[in-house]
């Protein structure tokens, strides 16, 4: 039963993920934490962090959410749900995309969705911030990382690991 719910929830998130993983975070948290009560807010933030520590797309962390809900079948359901629907859409649209290369509506869709995407990503960042920033030191880490990345060209992975080390040393 939970496996089916996972498939449904992550399948829904998959087709809604215009703007990628960050953009869909508020909806994911609303469903996983508030509606289905699969995780607490803290756990959601911590599992998101696990995704940041892993290579590849950080949204692969949905497998951990699925695993906690329904074991290995749950992990598979979450992955399948989150990656298959959007993947199929991409596959079929990719095949016909060139035909729309000269359509004026292509430009309209791209330009119109761009600000929407940025707004969704900001909302995702906001929800993430409210989830994981629980005290002054986490706030400082977030601000420092933002500033460093905007000013200098640094490998983000170093800052992610650095954040973990600083978090370990000084706590919340």
């Amino acid at each position: 039963m939970n496996v089916l719910s996972l498939l449904w929830v992550f399948g829904l998130l998959s087709v809604l993920a215009v703007g990628g993983g960050t953009a869909v975070l508020p909806e994911m948290k609303a469903l996983v934490v508030n509606q289905y009560h699969w995780l607490t807010s803290d756990q959601f933030g911590q599992i998101y962090s696990l995704g940041q520590l892993s290579p590849g797309p950080n949204m692969l962390m949905v497998s951990v959410i699925g695993y906690r809900v329904a074991g290995c079948a749950g992990a598979a359901a979450a992955l399948l749900g989150f990656f298959l629907p959007a993947g199929l859409i991409m596959f079929f649209c990719g095949r016909i995309w060139d035909r729309f290369a000269d359509s004026p509506w292509k430009e309209a869709v791209q330009r119109g969705l761009a600000p929407l995407t940025i707004g969704l990503m900001l909302a995702g960042t906001w929800v993430l911030a409210k989830t994981v920033i629980l005290g002054p030191s986490t706030a400082v880490i977030a601000v420092v990382v933002t500033v460093i990345l905007l000013v200098k060209h640094v490998n983000p992975a170093l800052l992610i690991f650095g954040g973990g080390i600083v978090g370990y040393l000084i706590g919340r």
């Binding site: 989830t131 954040g163 978090g167």
Partner: peptide
């Protein structure tokens, strides 16, 4: 994980 999450917000 708290530190990683905070850094992720920055990222």
């Amino acid at each position: 994980l708290g530190g990683v999450g905070a850094a992720a917000v920055g990222l």
